[in-house]
């Protein structure tokens, strides 16, 4: 039973991933990803990670994907040009993907982690419960918990700064297809002050 579910979910995940990569229209890609995410939720359930599965569905498939849908709707699903502007890229990419997969698989299967060949230890029924996860989050990983909340705040502020505008909230007017001169000016000014997003330069310290 478990095997059947596994293969079904695996197929769904793979199909969704392939769909994202292959489908030309980004809207269809978003939908493919939603399928992928649901399949992954099933896989999580198979691994007795109930809370994670729920979070996956509610947060990921629910909130994040809705965000994607909104943006794709705003931007429009223009199909992208087919030509290859970087010579060799279309040829090298599948090769590299395959190389990556092969290497990772060899690393996993050839490793001396004997436990990989098992089903895992017997766990008590409360494994993966919200209560258990909640205990961990609020006791042992409190710092990570708080830090991620700050991260969320930063992201929200960053998004507002990036895509928002000064002055009167006329967000509705500048909808898809003709933005007024105002709206394109304001973000340009905003661009002078990059938000407190982590800069890639950082590097060695």
């Amino acid at each position: 039973m478990e095997a059947v579910l596994f293969f079904a979910a695996a197929l769904g995940a793979l199909g969704g991933a392939v769909g994202v990569v292959v489908l030309r229209n980004p809207f269809y890609g978003v939908l493919a990803l939603i399928v992928h995410l649901f399949s992954l939720a099933v896989l999580f359930l198979l691994l007795t990670a109930a809370f994670v599965a729920a979070a996956q569905v509610v947060v990921y498939a629910g909130a994040v994907m809705v965000l994607y849908v909104f943006v794709v709707a705003y931007i429009g699903g223009d199909t992208e040009p087919l030509g290859d502007s970087i010579p060799g890229q279309k040829f090298l990419a599948p090769l590299l993907g395959a190389a990556l997969f092969v290497e990772l698989s060899i690393a996993v299967l050839g490793s001396s982690l004997l436990a990989l060949g098992t089903h895992g230890p017997n766990v008590n029924p409360g494994f993966g419960n919200p209560a258990a996860i909640g205990h961990l989050l609020l006791e042992r990983f409190l710092l990570a918990f708080e830090a991620s909340s700050i991260l969320l705040l930063l992201a929200a502020v960053g998004a507002v700064v990036l895509a928002g505008r000064q002055g009167t909230p006329e967000a509705g007017q500048g909808a898809a297809g003709g933005s007024s001169k105002h709206s394109s000016e304001a973000p340009a000014e905003r661009f002078e002050d990059p938000p407190a997003a982590p800069s890639p330069a950082g590097g060695g310290a």
Partner: peptide, 28 residues
């Protein structure tokens, strides 16, 4: 199912995602 199946699936998905980044041109 043994855990290694999940791991292999995970690496396959990872490779697919990487390939997708290299191939597609739309930022979304």
């Amino acid at each position: 199912m043994n855990i290694e199946w999940y791991i292999v699936l995970s690496s396959l998905l990872f490779a697919l995602g990487a390939m997708g980044i290299l191939v597609r041109r739309s930022p979304i």
